[in-house]
Structures are given as C-alpha cells and as structure tokens.
Simulated assay, not measured.
Amino acid sequence: MGRGVAGAGWPSASPPPAWDGLQWRLSDVTELPRVREELRRHTAAQGPVELRDRLLLVLDEMASNALRHGGGRVEACVRRTGDAFLVAVSDGDPRTPPTPAVDRDPSEGGLGLHLIAELSTAHGWYVEGDAKTVWAVLPRR
C-alpha cells in the first residue's frame, strides 16, 4: 500500500483485520489527555518514539473531530494488524463522511484529515448501523 492522500473526501472502505489493543468510550474532549497517556504507556515498548508520536497525533485528531462534529457516542481504539497499528474512531453521525478541508487558510484549522492521510499507509471510513467509523493504518516501523 502506498501513502494515503486526502482528496475531496476519504475513500469508503473497510479497514484491515486487527486485534488486541486499547479501546475507549468518550463523551468530551477533556478526556483526551487520559487517553493519550494510556496510549503512551501501552506503546512504550512497541516501537520508536516517532511511531508513538504519530499514533498519538492521529488518535487525537480523529477523536477530537468525532467529539466536536460527530454527535452522539464516540468510541476509539488502537489495535494491531500484522505489521501496523489500526486507529479507528466511531461516532453517531453516519450521514456525514469525513471531508478534508479544501482551500482553507491553515490558521482556521481543519487540516487534521490531510495530516492523518499523510501519516498513514491506508485510511478510510464506513457506516455500520447508526455509526460512522473513520480509520487509518500506521506502520510499526
């Protein structure tokens, strides 16, 4: 798989199989520092510091987007695939796909999806029932 690129929207696709890892139910952005600390501890011995920093950034961007814009319940997880980590965040807005900002002044924010696409080897989203899940795969090397 090559590097992902965020165009007009993210591809609608299922993530690769993943297992073992951490999972959180979130209701407010004030919970994100605790989530980041748990992820730091969990990944401390699983790769270089740069990997941990990328995982933290991707999880934080996805979870904060879901909490601010997704509505309803938010669930986040970081799991292992064969040679990568899968970061997935679900929210209660299945009608609105992840849409990267286009032609926006960077000072206005909204560039997180572009950043996630650049850091990942694959990314996408899908709807199941009344939830939307946005996901990204980050290599462990």
Results as ranks from 00 to 15, higher is better:
15 P>R: 02
123 H>T: 08
74 V>C: 03
32 L>A: 05
31 E>K: 08
10 W>C: 03
38 E>V: 07
80 R>M: 09
72 G>H: 06
60 D>S: 14
97 P>T: 09
44 A>S: 15
29 V>R: 10
34 R>D: 13
83 D>N: 12
127 V>N: 04
16 P>G: 06
69 H>M: 04
39 L>F: 05
87 V>Q: 00
96 T>R: 14
71 G>F: 02
20 D>P: 00
103 D>Y: 10
133 T>R: 02
111 L>N: 03
95 R>T: 15
1 M>E: 14
132 K>T: 06
68 R>I: 05
92 G>A: 12
103 D>V: 03
94 P>A: 07
5 V>N: 06
4 G>D: 05
89 V>D: 00
72 G>P: 09
21 G>I: 03
36 R>H: 11
131 A>V: 09
52 R>V: 14
85 F>Q: 01
49 V>S: 12
139 P>T: 13
82 G>R: 14
133 T>Y: 00
40 R>S: 13
50 E>Y: 00
136 A>C: 08
68 R>E: 15
39 L>Q: 01
65 N>R: 08
84 A>I: 02
110 G>T: 04
56 L>T: 03
105 D>S: 14
23 Q>E: 15
92 G>C: 09
98 P>D: 03
103 D>I: 01
34 R>F: 11
134 V>S: 11
135 W>D: 00
86 L>D: 01
40 R>N: 10
68 R>A: 15
26 L>G: 03
31 E>G: 11
116 I>C: 13
122 A>P: 01
4 G>K: 00
108 E>Y: 06
11 P>Y: 06
40 R>P: 03
19 W>R: 15
82 G>Q: 13
34 R>M: 11
18 A>E: 02
69 H>K: 07
111 L>I: 05
117 A>D: 03
135 W>V: 06
7 G>R: 10
139 P>Q: 14
22 L>A: 13
7 G>H: 09
7 G>M: 12
139 P>E: 14
51 L>G: 04
106 P>D: 09
101 A>G: 14
111 L>Y: 06
45 A>C: 05
138 L>M: 05
118 E>H: 15
58 V>G: 02
105 D>E: 15
139 P>K: 11
